[in-house]
Design a protein around this nucleic acid. Structure first.
Lengths: 127, 127
DNA sequence: ATCGTTCGTCTACATCTGTAAACGGAGGCT
DNA sequence: AGCCTCCGTTTACAGATGTAGACGAACGAT
């Protein structure tokens, strides 16, 4: 298995997200989404797809003369790494406000909110 | 006011963090920390400091023939922008797990935990 | 006054990233 | 059979980024 060492670049993340949101999909779908959401040309999207496959963030499945793309297992791992980088960028005294900011921005359902609450409780006990 | 449009690059973030942790400090301090923490040469650190000042993420104050560096007001704003980028990278169904991951990784004191709990409660009401 | 040390500035350059045109093969329509 | 269209592949290139040497001015000790 290819461990996907290289993190996606910002542009690659946008493609990754597009694929992630729709599950397995064809290049054409990504091209269309890329054009609408980011004004990208066909070639640009194709290049980004190729690089993501090379890096191991996307897997492909041949269908006829074309491919279907889907996120690899490493995709969420890459997101975690991006999260690590974000935390590493924050100074200790800014971590709290940073997390607060993230929580405010996020759309979460009741169940997710509950899980996060439990997490906070756990952490309280640890400390 | 300089709006610091360009986000820091990964390497620049590391420098920013160094300065952030110590408050106002001299290039020499950053050079030393950069060498210890990242194995950077003096020149590398100096280049990164310069670029950060150009971008408006660091402010300087002349003292004798050298400078003291400190984070600009835009520094935390840049961190928020990085947080936005992270959220934008996540697919909707991965946001919850992502936040959970971030919480687990973070060291937070009781007060910070409390504030986050309050935030979750607020969000619950909204929904 | 001199000389080594310390600073900031200028210059350099390989690699990565964003963005995209051009090309050649496969499939389908006429 | 011939042509249009769609697809993946190849090539291109400017600008950003990581990494760092070289240089000249100022400072401090002798």
């Amino acid at each position: 298995m290819v461990p996907a060492k290289d993190s996606p670049t910002p542009a690659e993340w946008k493609v990754l997200r597009i694929v992630w949101e729709r599950g397995e999909c064809a290049a054409r779908d990504v091209v269309e989404a890329g054009r609408e959401e980011h004004g990208w040309s066909t070639s640009t999207v194709k290049t980004l797809l190729r690089r993501l496959v090379e890096k191991g963030h996307l897997k492909t499945r041949r269908v006829g003369n074309s491919f279907l793309y889907r996120p690899g297992r490493s995709t969420f791992a890459a997101l975690r790494r991006a999260a690590d980088d974000l935390l590493a960028s924050a100074a200790q005294h800014t971590v709290g406000p940073l997390l607060a900011y993230l929580l405010r921005r996020s759309q979460l359902n009741a169940k997710e909110l509950d899980e996060l609450r439990s997490l906070l409780d756990e952490k309280e006990e640890d400390a």
